[in-house]
């Protein structure tokens, strides 16, 4: 493993019933690197990300993480009947932040994502899908993680926010974070350092410009 690598997954295997999803997949991400995971539906992108995050056990292989992880699932992992501020306090407490500190840090994350101030006391179920997704992403950023695992984090974003999202990715990269983004947006692959395509349970490394970016 290179000295700068903060995420190393080796020989990851995973099956669901008789269906083999991942067959010996390797993934390595360095500090200040953005890696895109691409592939067809069902190729195992989300499964690999969940295994790296630690929310799904692998059948085989190993994962090493060199720092705290921020995981943004594809399906917004929020409670319908809590507000954005309440989510910040709930998650922030887990990160050892006091209420006001969690609100201060979280509101800064939300502001960077153009989350409307007036929506901070709106129940999550009443937010638009894009605004809800911003909350989902902000919760992943809350602990100032050095590794970001983002599963199609821009779902529901309007065009302006979508572009801002990639500007943020560039900022996070400049700050030394390691970032893995599951994406179907092949047009954006020029913005990443490496592209890993999952096909038939295996990983193939490709440069972004070779993939149509």
């Amino acid at each position: 493993m290179p000295s700068t690598a903060v995420l190393t997954a080796q020989a990851i295997r995973k099956s669901f019933g008789r269906k083999r999803v991942l067959e010996g997949v390797d993934l390595e991400v360095a500090r200040g690197e953005v890696v895109a995971l691409v592939g067809e539906n069902g190729a195992g992108k989300t499964t690999l990300l969940r295994i790296c995050a630690g929310v799904l056990p692998a059948d085989g292989g190993s994962v090493e993480l060199g720092g705290p992880v921020g995981y943004c699932p594809q399906d917004p992992g929020v409670l319908d009947l809590l507000t954005a501020d309440e989510h910040l306090i709930y998650f922030g407490t887990g990160l050892r932040l006091h209420r006001q500190a969690a609100l201060d840090v979280g509101r800064r994350c939300l502001a960077r994502l153009d989350f409307p101030d007036r929506e901070r006391s709106t129940l999550a179920r009443d937010l638009s899908s894009g605004t809800r997704q911003k909350l989902n992403l902000a919760l992943a950023l809350l602990g100032d993680p050095s590794i970001l695992l983002l599963d199609e984090p821009y779902q529901g974003f309007d065009r302006g926010t979508y572009i801002d999202f990639w500007a943020l990715v560039a900022e996070w990269r400049a700050a030394g974070r390691a970032i893995v983004v599951v994406t179907h947006m092949l047009a954006e692959l020029r913005r990443v350092d490496r592209v890993i395509e999952l096909t038939a349970g295996r990983a193939r490394i490709a440069r972004g410009d070779e993939m149509g970016g």
Partner: peptide, 15 residues
């Protein structure tokens, strides 16, 4: 049921 979708995230956050 209500907490199912966030419990693992809360665990990752330090709970």
């Amino acid at each position: 049921l209500a907490s199912r979708r966030i419990e693992q995230r809360l665990m990752l956050a330090g709970y």
